[in-house]
């Protein structure tokens, strides 16, 4: 063994961009499920979830109950961390750096600075470079995604409209992001400066996206996925994986639906498999038509 030879110092570096973004790369092709109890977390793990999002109320209940939605109780997050071996994520309010610090101290694997909770700062998001724990943030368009990445986000999810069981906004936001990336691909170097100004995003990031043809971090979809076909749709539209919030534990048979969504996410381009796993799942969550939702009730407009 030459693993400890003096020429290769083994000083470990934690919290690097590669370690943070690399963590999200490991989640690709997978489903991240909202859970509110250790029992639900186990059901999610048994169904094949790649991670769980620990929160006090799923977005559908946050909508119903109203009031200020905050970071979850540390005891509840601990309970979920103890219950499963897969990564555990948790949400902080937008701009609430202390909630984020607390989540890092609790040892969660990813922090979602989330519009589903009530924003704590209407101007600034949290400086995510200051943390060892990686962050995922929502975005409705490319400029928003790049601003979050500039602040240190190591993963992006299209926002959709959480807690509605309606996939229409998830589709809109993912198409928007992908469409804007495709447009950048067609620009020459002179035009990229103006594009960066329009996107209100750093020029270096804009140029990187134009060259890669994708974000420099993993892109998932969130907000409104309720069926295996919804999950497969988001993957066909270019999402590298999906978050499912209320769609699982607000349905008739959560364990079966969760496993079915996992399978449909892997075989998203195989309609026969999606059909097979969609049989006999019981009731899907009821869902909300977006035209009945007042502007103030739209979470996707939170964040700037």
């Amino acid at each position: 063994m030459s693993a400890t030879s003096p020429s290769t110092p083994q000083t470990p570096a934690t919290g690097t961009a590669r370690v943070k973004r690399g963590m999200a790369e490991q989640l690709k092709g997978g489903v991240i499920m909202d859970v509110v109890t250790p029992e639900q977390a186990k059901i999610a793990e048994d169904a094949g979830a790649v991670a769980v999002m620990a929160l006090e109320r799923v977005p559908a209940d946050i909508r119903k109950d109203g009031g200020v939605a905050r970071m979850s109780d540390p005891d509840m997050i601990d309970g979920i961390i103890q219950a499963v071996s897969i990564p555990v994520m948790a949400k902080s309010r937008i701009g609430h750096l202390v909630e984020a610090q607390v989540l890092q101290a609790l040892g969660v694997d990813y922090i979602d600075e989330s519009e589903v909770l009530t924003p704590a700062d209407e101007v600034n998001h949290t400086d995510k470079w200051a943390f060892t724990t990686p962050f995922v943030c929502g975005a409705t368009n490319l400029g928003e995604a790049l601003r979050r990445i500039a602040e240190g986000a190591a993963m992006i999810r299209s926002k959709g409209e959480a807690g509605t069981g309606n996939v229409v906004e998830a589709v809109r936001h993912l198409r928007q992001i992908r469409g804007e990336i495709a447009r950048l691909r067609g620009l020459d170097n002179n035009e990229l400066y103006a594009a960066a100004k329009e996107l209100r995003a750093p020029y270096e990031l804009v140029r990187e996206v134009a060259e890669l043809g994708k974000l420099p971090v993993v892109l998932f979809s969130a907000g409104g996925v309720a069926t295996p076909a919804d999950a497969a749709l988001m993957r066909q539209l270019g999402a590298e994986g999906v978050f499912v919030g209320s769609g699982i534990f607000k349905s008739g048979d959560p364990a079966r639906r969760a496993a079915a969504i996992v399978k449909a996410t892997t075989f998203y381009d195989d309609p026969k498999t999606v059909a097979d796993v969609s049989r006999g799942l019981g009731e899907a969550m009821v869902g909300i038509n977006l035209d009945t939702l007042a502007d103030a009730e739209r979470y996707a407009s939170r964040g700037w």
């Binding site: 083994q10 000083t11 470990p12 570096a13 934690t14 919290g15 690097t16 590669r18 370690v19 690399g22 963590m23 990564p87 890092q104 040892g107 969660v108 694997d109 990813y110 060892t132 724990t133 990686p134």
Partner: peptide, 8 residues
């Protein structure tokens, strides 16, 4: 956990 993930 993730906070202990590292490069070396």
């Amino acid at each position: 956990r993730q906070n202990e993930s590292f490069e070396a």
